[in-house]
Design a binder for these strands. Structure first.
Lengths: 223, 223
DNA sequence: TAGATTGTTAATCGATTAACAATC
DNA sequence: TAGATTGTTAATCGATTAACAATC
């Protein structure tokens, strides 16, 4: 019988980490890298929080989910904390990813250098259009969607990015899961229905703009 | 003295609407349009919720922030609710928008048809590179960044999309605000610092992937 | 030592869910 | 009428903040 160690701070079943905490972890990491580039060695929770609009308590609490990283009287050493967060997020590993759909958005994603910032590496693109098969875009080969499983296994791809029209997204998503993918970044403007255990992050560009228009239309409350 | 009307359900200062509610409103709208296309006239909070993974109570509570839209015993009429939500979000209006930066990502956004789904219309692009000035991309003219204020005022643009490198983003953001923009969709991987009253929505592609890698690395808790 | 800052517990705040009278 | 479903209040749950002893 597996006995749960109550000294264990990690996000096991006993201590599920809220989604919001994980989002902020990414922001901390990004901010810390900026700070480090500016030559600062350490930073306090108060400083880090204020750069991002969070309280000092929130920063400390978030980190406390995963362990003790700070030094009382000093703060956090940037280099150390960056490394710790990357390990928590899994971005200390190499993540070969695939992009499905080489329309406008897919092509942009193929050329986007920002992915590589944290160990993500686009290794293959897929499209249903046979005239695209074999084409190279920004050094990445475009495969036919029917080769999804083969290439995915060969390259050890676990994360897929959906950049196909909404009408095709659900079917593509199912095929990704069949091919063994466990995480999906979905740019199509539809709700995907996938088995539990497959994590989905959705980015709908129109919805992001809607958040802005709501805020603008209702910004009397701000003024 | 302005007396607050306690019958007023809208998100005035008395009743600030949580950010999470606004996000879900967009999802409801998207889902309702799908449902309507499938020929359904009405839908219950239970059905709508389950399509999106929310409880029925949550759906009803979210909508209750803004008024009464349902019919006891019947549910919600799709057409009516869609129109109501669009009015709440402001997407019943026309929103001319500008894209700043015509690199890989900016170009993809210029060609992205999904923006127009809800009244968003890209009317201008800007870039600091003078060799791009005057070029047309997908029918949109690229202006030099120095013409930002002129074009913004002429076209009545209030929302801007930042698709420039991180190193230039803060400076560009400040210029957008100076030009009169009140909402910014930021694709650059940096935290923007802008006056209160300017709403910022950030989309960091690498961070979205990090959320996936965390979930995958820690998915023992799911299994 | 005095000053700064952490990690953590308790208190507060806000958001989600359950329950149900009112309505069609 | 019986069945379905809303809008809303009260109860629950979870997340944020405040406070402070422990530490450097």
């Amino acid at each position: 019988m597996t006995q749960s160690n109550s000294n264990e701070p990690r996000g096991g079943p006993e201590n599920p980490v809220p989604q919001a905490v994980v989002s902020r972890l990414s922001l901390y990491s990004r901010e810390l890298q900026q700070i480090q580039q500016e030559g600062k060695e350490t930073i306090s929770s108060t400083q880090l929080g204020s750069l991002l609009g969070f309280t000092d308590a929130q920063v400390r609490k978030d980190l406390a989910y995963f362990g003790q990283f700070g030094y009382p009287g000093i703060g956090y050493r940037c280099a150390e904390l960056i490394e710790a967060i990357q390990q928590i997020l899994g971005t200390d590993q190499d993540w070969p990813i695939a992009i499905i759909g080489v329309g406008n958005l897919g092509r942009a994603l193929l050329g986007y250098r920002g992915f590589s910032r944290q160990g993500f590496r686009v290794v293959a693109a897929f499209d249903a259009d046979k005239s695209q098969t074999g084409v190279q875009i920004d050094g990445i080969t475009v495969y036919h969607i029917d080769d999804l499983t083969d290439v995915t296994r060969r390259e050890g791809i676990r994360l897929g990015v959906i950049a196909v029209p909404g009408s095709a997204a659900q079917e593509v998503a199912v095929r990704l899961v069949e091919a063994g993918m466990v995480g999906v970044l979905n740019f199509a403007p539809v709700t995907l229905n996938l088995p539990d255990g497959v994590r989905i992050v959705g980015v709908d560009l129109a919805i992001e703009l809607e958040q802005l228009s709501f805020a603008v239309v209702n910004r009397a409350s701000n003024a």
